[in-house]
C-alpha cells in the first residue's frame, strides 16, 4: 500500500499501520460513493434514454428532468413490507442478494481505477475477477432454488445453462488477452494498450467477450434469467421490496463492473490524452454502458436453448480461433 501510504502521510501527517488503515478506508469509501453515483446517474440516464427511444418522456415530475425519480422509487421501495415466503429456504434465500452486491462491489475494489493506486492491482487480478464473476450465476442458482418459487426455480436452471454456454468462451478470450498483455495484472493489460487498443488487435475476441458480458450481466437479449414476460421476474419473483432495491442496485453495479472490464480489456482502460486517467476510464465505462442500454431497448430476448447452441457453435469456436490467431500473430 505504498502509494496510498504516501498520500495519507503527506496530507494527514500520520504514518505506519494507521496510515494504511486510513488509506484503505478512504479508498473503499471513495469507490463506494463512485459506485452509488454511477448506479444513480445511470439509472436515470437509462430511463430517460429508453423513454426517448420509445417516444415517451420518461420521468419528469420528481426534480428537474425527473432526476429525483430514482430517489423517490428507492424511498418508496424501502418503505414497503419485507415478506419472506414461508416455503423459502431462508439460509439460501436471504443472504444471496446482499452477498452478490458485496461480491460485485468487492470486484470493483480489485480493479485499479487510476495508475497512482495500483496497489489494488493483485498479481493475477484478471483471473481472480474471472473466478469470482463465475460465482455469481451459482449464487443466483442458490437464490432461485432457495425461494421455493417455481418460476425462480426455472430461472435457476436457466442460470446454470447460461453458465455452461458462455463460461468456456470467456476463459478463452481472457487467455488471449493474457497472451497479448503478457500477464494478467489489470494495470499491465492497460499499459499494454498504450498504442493499440485490444479491440483493434482482436475484434473477434471483443465480439465474444461483449456477448458473454451481456449474458453475464443479465442484459437483453440474454436476460432469460429475469425474463419478465415469461418468468414474472425470474429468480427475483419472490424477493420483496427492500431486497428488490438491493437487486436493482446490484443490476447497475454489475453493469458498472462489466463495462469496467470491457473498457479495461479492450478499450485501453485509463489510456487517453489530456484528461486524467480516471476520467478516461469512467468515460469509456459510461459509453459502453450506454451501448448496452441501447441494445436493451432494441432487441428481442433469445431463447435459452438457442443461447446454448449459439455458445457452443459460435462463441466457442470463435474464441478458440481468436486465441490461435493471437498466438500465431504475436507469439509464434
Amino acid at each position: 500500500m505504498s502509494d496510498l501510504n504516501t498520500i495519507v502521510s503527506t496530507y494527514l501527517g500520520v504514518s505506519g499501520i494507521l496510515a494504511e488503515i486510513i488509506g484503505i478506508v478512504a479508498y473503499a469509501v471513495a469507490v463506494s460513493i463512485l459506485i452509488v453515483a454511477f448506479d444513480y446517474v445511470f439509472g436515470w440516464v437509462e430511463r430517460k434514454t429508453i423513454a426517448k427511444i420509445q417516444k415517451r418522456h420518461g420521468p419528469t415530475y420528481a426534480g428537474k428532468y425527473g432526476i429525483l425519480q430514482n430517489m423517490a422509487d428507492f424511498v418508496k421501495l424501502l418503505s414497503k413490507e419485507h415478506v419472506v415466503p414461508k416455503r423459502a429456504d431462508k439460509l439460501l434465500f436471504l443472504p444471496t442478494i446482499p452477498a452478490m452486491l458485496a461480491l460485485s462491489v468487492f470486484l470493483i475494489f480489485l480493479i485499479p481505477l487510476t495508475p497512482e493506486l495500483i496497489e489494488t492491482n493483485i498479481g493475477l487480478g484478471l483471473l481472480v475477477i474471472l473466478v469470482l464473476l463465475s460465482f455469481m450465476p451459482l449464487i443466483i442458482f442458490a437464490n432461485g432454488f432457495g425461494s421455493g418459487n417455481k418460476f425462480a426455480a426455472i430461472s435457476a436452471q436457466r442460470s446454470v445453462v447460461m453458465l455452461l454456454s458462455y463460461e468456456i468462451p470467456l476463459v478463452f478470450v481472457i487467455a488471449a488477452v493474457g497472451v497479448l498483455a503478457n500477464g494478467y495484472t489489470l494495470s499491465g493489460i492497460m499499459s499494454a494498450q498504450n498504442h493499440w487498443w485490444f479491440v483493434f488487435l482482436m475484434p473477434i475476441g471483443f465480439f465474444v467477450f461483449f456477448i458473454v458480458m451481456l449474458a453475464e450481466l443479465e442484459r437483453p437479449p440474454f436476460d432469460m434469467r429475469e425474463a419478465d414476460n415469461e418468468l414474472i421476474a425470474g429468480w427475483l419473483t419472490d424477493v420483496s421490496a427492500p431486497y428488490y432495491t438491493l437487486a436493482l442496485f446490484l443490476d447497475y453495479t454489475r453493469m458498472f463492473l462489466g463495462s469496467l472490464l470491457i473498457a479495461i480489456l479492450f478499450f485501453g482502460g485509463w489510456n487517453g490524452p489530456v484528461l486524467p486517467p480516471v476520467v478516461w476510464l469512467l468515460l469509456k465505462v459510461f459509453i459502453i454502458s450506454f451501448f448496452i442500454m441501447i441494445v436493451r431497448a432494441t432487441t428481442v430476448r433469445m431463447r435459452i436453448d438457442r443461447l446454448l447452441r449459439f455458445g457452443w457453435t459460435w462463441l466457442l469456436p470463435l474464441s478458440l480461433l481468436n486465441l490461435i490467431l493471437i498466438y500465431l500473430l504475436f507469439i509464434g
Partner: peptide, 13 residues
C-alpha cells in the same frame, strides 16, 4: 413484441 422479450419499444410505438 413484448411477449418475445422486446423491451416495450415496439409496444410504445
Amino acid at each position: 413484441a413484448n411477449d418475445v422479450g422486446q423491451f416495450f419499444t415496439v409496444f410504445m410505438w
